[in-house]
Amino acid sequence: MSVVHPHESRRQVAVLGATGSIGASALDVIARHRQRLRASVLAAGSNVDALIALCRTHQPDHAVIADPGSHARLRDGLHQAGLKTQAHAGGHALDALVASDACDTVVAAIVGAAGLPSTLAAARAGKRLLLANKESLVLAGDLLMAAANRSNAEIIPIDSEHNAIFQCLRSRQTQGDVRRVLLTASGGPFRGRSRAQLADVTVQQAVAHPKWSMGPKISVDSATLMNKGLELIEAHHLFDLPRAKLDVLVHPQSLVHSLVEFVDGSTLAQMGLPDMRTSLAVGLGWPQRIDSGVAGLDLLQHGRLEFEAPDTDAFPCLRLAWSALESGGTAPAVLNAANEIAVSAFLQGKIGFLSIPALVESTLSALPAAPADSLEALLEVDAQARSLTRNAIAGHAIRA
């Protein structure tokens, strides 16, 4: 894929979800390497002012706002700022840009199923895809990986756990060398609490992650352990690993990001401070190592490293994700869709914390797994799962 001139010596990076926490981290790394990296496309959801501010700093060729109604405001704001950045709006415009010569690298950090079309567009176009949108793999993992394989797209996962596995697997020769992969989980803000102690937790408590700085949706997913469940499904697709070779360890210090055990008895772990800039620097610089702005790990300062088994009674979302992975087909898409609606309702104060897994389980039971042989089928079951979950919330059918 050719790269636009006159910047052909620099990697041209599209940052999707530029105004979010991962977008900010990506832009921080890019700004540290202006001779080799350039933000050529910035995309955001609805925050026009924040997007224009980023364009002032990074001067991309293109800026995209998801809301078509905000196009004129973005265009006029860029013009008033004296920028040559072209304004675009809507999903189709974003997909077209991602697939074009406007970029050779795509940081896919749009939260939720909304990030799937642009992620697929990047994969089909053979781009280097820094994948931070886990829903793309959970909803349509088989389709995404098939598209990437056809076009020789390079997928480098940005989740710290999958990025750790990506790095550790560089020492293997064949898939048979791997005995098992252990994803680590911080345990979230409620680690150690019983199910009964989780009934009255507040939104503020749930989004206060002890180690990572993340958006509200991902923070709640970490608190329920759904985040780890989604990551198991991701790992299955990313690394072509069966369920039997995947497991989870709770590691509250969040310094060991994941481990790979090999058939010879060796176990490799990737360690580092909990900062997304490390994995983004891996994705942007690979196979070279580049400065991320993150300090090295002082184990003497941090002291003891602890590990424990996850509590799937108090945190049933992890169990539900295991089940969806084993069922296959459309089950992960149903899991993801029901969870998105349930978490949104919790963040709005409409349901309690324990209603999240109850709603997900109810929707999974109502929509048995079917073949996931097309994007249309997956989007249809995604819509059905969202509708069922919304109806359950509206009817107060489940208010745990």
Rank of each mutant, 00 (worst) to 15 (best):
I110C: 11
V111D: 00
A113T: 14
A114I: 10
G115T: 05
G115M: 09
P117C: 11
S118Q: 13
S118R: 07
S118G: 10
T119Y: 09
L120N: 10
L120M: 15
A121M: 13
A122D: 10
A122Y: 13
A123R: 02
R124V: 10
R124K: 15
R124W: 08
A125D: 05
A125F: 14
A125C: 11
G126H: 13
K127Y: 12
R128S: 04
R128K: 15
R128C: 07
L129W: 01
L129P: 02
A132H: 06
N133W: 09
N133T: 08
E135W: 10
E135P: 07
S136C: 09
S136F: 08
L137Y: 02
V138T: 08
V138K: 07
L139Y: 12
L139V: 15
L139S: 10
A140I: 00
A140N: 02
A140C: 11
G141E: 03
D142Y: 04
A146M: 09
A147C: 07
A147N: 04
A147I: 06
A147G: 05
A148S: 12
A148R: 07
A148Q: 11
N149T: 13
N149E: 14
R150Q: 14
S151L: 04
N152V: 05
N152R: 14
A153D: 00
A153R: 01
E154T: 13
E154H: 15
I155W: 02
I155C: 07
P157C: 06
P157S: 06
S160A: 11
E161Q: 14
H162L: 05
H162S: 02
H162P: 01
A164L: 03
A164W: 00
I165F: 04
I165G: 00
F166C: 01
Q167R: 03
C168V: 09
C168H: 01
C168G: 05
C168R: 00
L169H: 02
R170F: 08
S171E: 09
R172H: 04
T174C: 00
Q175A: 15
Q175E: 15
G176M: 07
G176I: 04
V178H: 05
R179I: 01
R179H: 14
R179S: 14
R180Q: 10
R180W: 04
